[in-house]
Write a protein that binds this DNA or RNA. Sequence first.
DNA 1: CAATTCTGCTTCATCGATTGAGCAAGCGAG
DNA 2: CTCGCTTGCTCAATCGATGAAGCAGAATTG
Lengths: 339, 339
Amino acid sequence: MKRGTQTKRTTIYDLAELAGTSASAVSAVLSGNWKKRRISSQLAEKITRLAEEQGYALNMQASVLRRERSKIIGMLVPKYDNRYFGSIVEQFETRARERGLFPIITCTRRDPALEIEAARAMLSYQVDCLIATGATDPDRIADICSAAGVRTVNLDLPGSRVPSVISDNFGGALELTRRVLANSEREFGEKTPLLFVGGRGTDHNTSERVRGFRAAHAEAGVEVDEALVLTCGYAPEKAENAMKSLADKVGPLPRGMFVNSTISLEGVMRWIRRSGHYADRMPLLGCFDWDPFVAMLGDHIEMVRQDVPRMLDAVFEIIDSGASELKLIQIPPIVEQTG
Amino acid sequence: MKRGTQTKRTTIYDLAELAGTSASAVSAVLSGNWKKRRISSQLAEKITRLAEEQGYALNMQASVLRRERSKIIGMLVPKYDNRYFGSIVEQFETRARERGLFPIITCTRRDPALEIEAARAMLSYQVDCLIATGATDPDRIADICSAAGVRTVNLDLPGSRVPSVISDNFGGALELTRRVLANSEREFGEKTPLLFVGGRGTDHNTSERVRGFRAAHAEAGVEVDEALVLTCGYAPEKAENAMKSLADKVGPLPRGMFVNSTISLEGVMRWIRRSGHYADRMPLLGCFDWDPFVAMLGDHIEMVRQDVPRMLDAVFEIIDSGASELKLIQIPPIVEQTG
DNA sequence: CAATTCTGCTTCATCGATTGAGCAAGCGAG
DNA sequence: CTCGCTTGCTCAATCGATGAAGCAGAATTG
């Protein structure tokens, strides 16, 4: 009794006919509210069995079209090339599914135009809610969504229209810088100004981290060397090039550095290896973001790991509570212990 | 003239009324086939303008319900925690969008039950095609999909029902093992049996890689020590535990090893650091998979990098051509140059 | 026994977009 | 002037699921 090669899919009408009943009864049974609709348990059982036998699968398009809430939740994410965004996506999916929501994720590759296009696509698919992760223009996305009556939450980078969940970038950077400065004192007997490399000067996270970086210097009585703040972008090549041109300009290179993401660190490390600088002694490193292999790269690498589980808990708390007033939740990152 | 806080979304009926025309004309214009349907360009222009003004967004659920193809393409992926799967997902999204398809991805966390559930969810969302990446039971997924008339392609791990695109695991492992053995000869003056660690003994990739590992040994005239083939699973903890219990059992540890993924390498490296073994001299390493930081871990780490762009080209070639006869496409991985 | 309530269904409109069929006006040819 | 063709649209059915409203028949109540 198996259906031939890809005839039409089984629908509730097919099941209704097989069961000698109406589509409405089938729908009631399969959507689980047959008690409410006073369907006898015999019929319910029969329909359930038939559905099983026929390999029935609900047509979500039809279902969503009819219902007022789609139970689809969207997420925009810039990249999949590091642990931070990878775990954001994984945790997001898990939590969405726990709540009976269907997660759809789209990677926008840090491309502002693609971000907008992706947001529109999500709206077309009737998402109930959209999470904009690390968006270059979160407010634009929030506007588009609010016009369609769709709730938005910003993650990783804040906006000024809807709630945002981000790391405590200032606090994390402060602590990270402190540690690198402390290592500097331990190793070289003095605290010397560090290099800051990576990130976009215009984004909130980077500017907060630079602020933390400055604060730690101030607190240690070390003056920040402004030529050593290189907010050149996140991509490895950009970090590598920034290092290259820096080395051409300044004299002695700093003994330690604050690298503003693992992805920038990739470029920095590449430059170190290729250029032959620091050949005798590796610079003291601090990295804002965590990667298991980075931890193994040397003895003096400090890392702060953004607390993704807590960040996503906060995101879903906002979603579950239905709150949508503007607020900024800052989650302290975890300072990794290094030997 | 802005709509109040989340009234109903604008539909083609709203636009039709505003334009003093029919929904049918609006649909024709906005779906781009107004020439075919003989709509005057004045009307087309007017409708387009109105749609813009009103912030109209197509309701995909309705559209897909009516059409026979959804243009939605699904992908199941085991994890987002390494570069390999990360780039698979990113490349998949890009290629899907290039073709006007809407990609949806779900992470199954190497959980067979979740895999099936996710496949069913994809079917409910009317995907036209599903790519099962690294699935534990690809044939089960293929069966479920074929019952619904949905095409499937396996990626990374092959199945026996539908086309599969995988790396040339034998060839890659052969070359990788050769290199580690060569390093062994260079460093220690002799080729000694290597350790194989990571992966599931039951999966096709792992068994092919073990085969390549054996072949390289055979070719070098070195006998494989069967106690040194640890297919303990991929997770870092599993690799770590396998190393721990190996160290308790055997006497002198092997001088080099073949690690069957970056994720297993994470566990191996952790064990090396924690146990203090290899404290005097790091083992020679070969890793099947690439990671930028792993490359920087030491001087003697060989890696093969799976050729994700070519793999995805092959996947989409199959999809574009509509072929669905069983075949196995093996893409040679790239041997990374280390210095 | 009539009136009411309860049980277990069915009927039908609806969600928004798509598309085959059809219709009216205009225009050119005969 | 009339026939036929083109142009430019509209009508209405349809995709599959949902749920309010309604309707028989059985059970209960007064």
